[in-house]
Structure formats: structure tokens, C-alpha cells
Design a protein around this nucleic acid. Structure first.
Length: 523
RNA sequence: CGCGGGGUAGAGCAGUCCGGUAGCUCGUUUGGCUCAUAACCAAAAGGUCGGUGGUUCAAAUCCACCCCCCGCAACCA
């Protein structure tokens, strides 16, 4: 048993704060990792930060900070965010880590047979001290929006990686599902993209135009461009090349990325691996993007949703819940506060939270907290397991919810409160009541187990509460009702709920939003 | 122009591969219950399944053409 598994997430570029988009990477990987651990596997789970490159250097300069200090602070922010989401990663890699940099240089040297010097030509902004893409140049009519200057056509010497040479092998691997791209339409999209082969990729910049990066071995006039550096993290974090332990985990079982960077992970990265003589990852899971009010999230539109704000208002479990059930893994999905609030109140608070509460109360009230013989696992797990295996997470959580709703229905149908009335002097009724409540507790425990990958803290609370057969006195509630104030509504402060006893981890208090914050709700 | 995704009740979606009385969640309305977080349970209303034409006894589902929305087109999760 206990096969060693490995899952990776894309490492965000730390030139800005975390946003809701990053949630998807971490959450998907965490759900998978927790599920596999539940199944008895050993899981290595990487997260990290991409800290090199001009944009970061420019940003640090803008805010007048020392580069290393700047990336240290941003790294800390991301780390804090990942931790606050309760992500069960095993490794956090930073591309500025000296070990990583050394490994990247080693990788470069191994790839030398496929690296050649060429000329890069493109639109260059003197103000930014960097090239922009043709697309960007076109979109801005050839004038840099930040500096008001026209772009210049410049060329410079770069090293190129012969990705073209590996087109065939990469394509074959993808077609044969040796490197399986999920969902399938992404695979189709990518294969179409490289139907004429993959182009060679520029992988370095002259030091004068890019200094914040890994030096190219044997040429101190050149610095590596970020992709080679960043992609390498998936193996350097395992200790590649010197620590042989990497062999226990590579190839990765799943690599999670956003649709925007699929091509690097489906093309360049596999090409690098083939060049290094390493096996390709087994699955590339490409998730969609989160839109806000139907529009792409962007700073200029000012519609960026801060996940930290969500956690502050509703808690990490709520964030995890919403993004695993109501945000599609593979398609783009819309986020707005209204939907979020509805899901939280209707599903987490009313369905699940209230079920826990009414069950605990009845057991406490009718039988002094002692649960009878708990029946277990009567819900067929086939559909759930299949959904988890196929990475259809919202289907899996739906299936867990069947149990939650079923328990609520069951309670209403058998009416334990009525049985309780006659149970006082009728031993048969007493036994019946016992069975009924034990059945509900059994459902709850099974649901908790199914929900563990999604809502680990909640799952543990439920298990703690009912698992021993004697109810722990519950003083608080699982998910206190939380309403965001609207512009009109007078703030009617929610009674400060007592939240402990059931809460091993610090439970987020329902924070009263300062001023009205129902911004996007209208959209 | 090309490639991909999508257009099904007020909203969000499933069903389309393998044609056969149009389904789920939320919202709305009504009823029930009282163990519970003004929670829970039940029932009802609500859709000519983007359009046109075709195949068929039968089309949301297959075929053809067309319209609309979104994304991608090489370095933004």
C-alpha cells in the first residue's frame, strides 16, 4: 500500500497580493492531497513562490524597497495566505532559495545540447526597461501606458531552448494520455496549438536588461528568464539533482495549473523534462478562472476580490466550501458576495450546521449525550470515490450533501421528539429512539469523513463531537449565520455567538464589515 | 480569419456521446413540524431546451446552415 504520491501547484508571481484566483490552485491540490492521505497514501504536496524577474524588480523599485526585502515580504504574505486556507502542503519553495538556484543552473547545464544563442526582437520600453509582447504593444497603440513613451523596436541576444526538437515526443505523450491533460477540451486546445510543432523558447536575457534572476552558467552577461527557473521548481523542491529522494516522488501524479499557463506546463515543461531524460507528469489538471460579475478580474476594473477578506468575514472553511462546490474546477465561474453569502447561510449554516446542532441537542436531551450503537457507512461510496478519482470535486461534495439532506429528512419523517415522549415508560420505544438517533449520528459521521478533503476543520469538529459515542457538550454553533450588510439595511449586530468548545482551531468570528460592502452583489 | 467553450424555468447548472413523457440547487408561493442556527420537512407555480430547415413514429439530444456571448492566439491563477 502507501504508494508515494506527488502533487504540485503553480507558484504565483509575487508582484501583487494573493487574489481569489490563487485559491483554486491551492484548494484543488489540497482536496486531492487530503483525499489521497485518507486513502492511506503518502503524499508530497508542493506550493511556492516565483520571485525573480523584471516585473518584480520594477515593483520593488516603485515602492522603493530593497529587492530581497520586497520578495521576503511578499513571500510571507503568500505563505500566510496559504496557511490561513488550511492547506496541507509539505513543501514551500521559493525560487530565490540558493538550493533551487543551484539546481536550476545544473538543469541548464544538462540542457546545454539543446540551447543555442539567438536574437530576440520585439517592442521595448525604455521606462520599464523591458520588452512587451506584440499583443500588448498593439493594445496600447505602441505607447507605454506607464511612461507615455513609444515602444522601440529592439533586438538583443538571448539563449534559446530547442523546444521544437521535442514537439513530437510531447505530442505523443499527450495523445497517449501518458501526460493526461484534464479536462479533455484543454487537451484538444493544446494539441491544436502545437499542431505545427512547438517553437523554440527564449530562456535568457542580457544582464543589463534583467538582473534579478538566476545567472546563466558560463556566461555572466546573461540571466535566466523566469519560466525555466520557475518550472524547474517542481523537481528542485524534491531535492533534484543531488538528493536522491526526488526519485521517490517524480513524476508528479497531478500538476495543478490555471488555464492561462497551461501551455508552459503542457509544452515547455515537458520538453525540458524530455531534454533532461526525466519522465513526464501523469496528469495536468487545468482549472478555469474566477470571474467577478461576469467580467474578468483586473486591477484596472477594480473588481478584484480579496480572498483574505472572505476568510475574515466567513472563515476559511466557508471559502473552501464555496470554491469546491460552487466554483467549477474546469470551467470559468463567477464569484459574487451574494452567492457566497447564500451558499454559506443556506448550506453550511442551515443544512449542515443546523443538522449537527439539532442532532447533538436531541442526543443530549433525550439520552444524556450517549449515542447508541452507531451504524456506519450505509451510504454507497462508489459515486463519491469515482468523482474524487476523476477530479470532479463538486460532484463528490454533492454526494456528501445527499447524506446531510437525507439525515434532515429522516429526522422529520421519524420525529424523534415524539418517540421521546413515549420512551419514558416504554422500553421498546426507548430502544427505537436509540436506533434512530444512532442512525443520524452515523450519517453525520460518514458525511464528515466524505467532507474531510473539502472541510477538514469542520469534519474534525463533527468527528470529535460524535465519534466517541458520547456527545461533547456543544456550546457554539458550527456556522453562525452571517449577513453582509447592504447599503440600506441598518446594521443589526449579530449576537456574538459563543464559538469555542467545538472549535479547536481559532474560529473566525463573523466580522461586521466596516461600512456597507455589498458592492458586487448587484452585478 | 483560425481554434476552443457556452446559449435549457427569475438566477446558477445537469441532461446532449448511447434520440423516447424536461431535471437539480437557489429564489418565489403555500402547507406541515417544533429536536434545531427565525432552522427543518412537504407541495405548488415557473421552460415553445438560441434560430431555421432536415432525418425519424419520436429531437434539448443526430445532420446542415445561421445568430449571440465568453475565452485563446506564446510568457497574467
Amino acid at each position: 500500500m502507501s504508494k508515494k504520491l506527488y502533487i504540485t501547484t503553480a507558484i504565483p508571481y509575487v508582484n501583487a497580493k494573493p487574489h481569489v484566483g490563487h485559491v483554486m490552485d491551492y484548494l484543488i491540490a489540497d482536496i486531492w492531497a487530503r483525499y489521497q492521505k485518507q486513502m492511506g497514501h503518502e503524499v508530497r504536496f508542493q506550493v511556492g513562490t516565483d520571485e525573480h524577474g523584471n516585473k518584480i524588480a520594477a515593483k520593488a523599485r516603485d515602492v522603493g524597497q530593497n529587492l530581497q526585502v520586497f520578495v521576503d515580504e511578499n513571500y510571507a504574505e503568500f505563505k500566510k495566505f496559504v496557511d490561513s486556507m488550511n492547506i496541507s502542503y509539505t513543501d514551500f519553495i521559493r525560487t530565490t532559495d540558493p538550493k533551487h538556484q543551484a539546481a536550476v543552473q545544473y538543469i541548464w547545464q544538462q540542457l546545454t545540447p539543446y540551447i543555442y544563442k539567438g536574437t530576440y526582437e520585439g517592442w521595448y520600453c525604455e521606462g520599464c526597461e523591458s520588452f512587451v509582447t506584440d499583443k500588448e504593444a498593439a493594445a496600447t497603440n505602441g505607447v507605454c501606458p506607464d511612461h507615455g513613451k513609444s515602444y522601440q523596436r529592439l533586438s538583443e541576444e538571448n539563449y534559446y531552448f530547442k523546444a521544437s526538437e521535442f514537439s513530437g515526443k510531447v505530442r505523443e505523450a499527450i495523445e497517449a494520455h501518458k501526460l493526461k491533460i484534464v479536462p479533455e477540451f484543454r487537451q484538444k486546445e493544446f494539441l491544436n496549438l502545437i499542431k505545427d510543432g512547438m517553437p523554440d523558447v527564449s530562456i535568457s536575457r542580457p544582464k543589463k536588461s534583467l538582473s534579478w534572476g538566476v545567472p546563466v552558467p558560463g556566461d555572466d552577461t546573461q540571466v535566466m528568464y523566469v519560466w525555466l527557473d520557475a518550472l524547474a521548481n517542481y523537481i528542485t523542491v524534491l531535492g533534484y539533482p543531488e538528493d536522491a529522494a526526488w526519485k521517490d516522488y517524480w513524476p508528479a501524479d497531478v500538476q495543478v495549473v490555471g488555464k492561462d499557463i497551461m501551455r508552459f506546463h503542457a509544452g515547455l515543461w515537458p520538453a525540458m523534462l524530455v531534454g533532461l531524460g526525466l519522465p513526464l507528469p501523469k496528469v495536468l489538471l487545468v482549472h478555469g478562472h474566477v470571474t467577478v460579475g461576469g467580467a474578468k478580474m483586473s486591477k484596472t476594473m477594480g473588481n478584484v476580490v480579496d480572498p483574505v477578506e472572505i476568510i475574515n468575514k466567513f472563515g476559511a472553511e466557508a471559502l473552501r466550501y464555496y470554491f469546491s462546490r460552487h466554483v467549477s474546477t474546469t470551467e470559468d465561474s463567477d464569484f459574487n458576495w451574494r452567492k457566497f453569502e447564500d451558499a454559506y447561510n443556506n448550506e453550511l449554516a442551515n443544512d449542515l450546521g443546523n443538522l449537527v446542532s439539532r442532532t447533538a441537542n436531541m442526543v443530549t436531551r433525550y439520552q444524556a449525550g450517549v449515542v447508541g450503537e452507531i451504524q456506519k457507512a450505509e451510504h454507497d461510496m462508489f459515486a463519491y470515490n469515482e468523482a474524487m478519482r476523476e477530479l470532479r470535486f463538486s460532484d463528490a461534495i454533492d454526494d456528501a450533501w445527499v447524506l446531510v439532506q437525507g439525515a434532515n429528512q429522516f429526522i422529520d419523517r421519524v420525529k424523534p421528539w415524539e418517540i421521546a415522549k413515549s420512551a419514558a415508560d416504554d422500553p421498546e420505544e426507548k430502544e427505537h429512539l436509540d436506533e434512530v438517533l444512532a442512525h443520524v449520528v452515523g450519517s453525520l459521521l460518514q458525511a464528515a469523513s466524505m467532507l474531510y478533503p473539502f472541510l477538514p476543520a469542520t469534519s474534525e469538529k463533527i468527528t470529535d463531537m460524535f465519534g466517541t459515542g458520547v456527545i461533547k457538550p456543544a456550546e457554539g454553533v458550527l456556522f453562525p449565520k452571517t449577513k453582509l450588510e447592504t447599503a440600506e439595511a441598518q446594521p443589526a449586530p449579530v449576537a456574538e455567538p459563543v464559538v469555542e468548545a467545538v472549535a479547536p482551531a481559532p474560529e473566525p468570528e463573523p466580522v461586521q464589515p466596516e461600512p456597507p460592502v455589498s458592492d458586487v452583489a448587484a452585478g
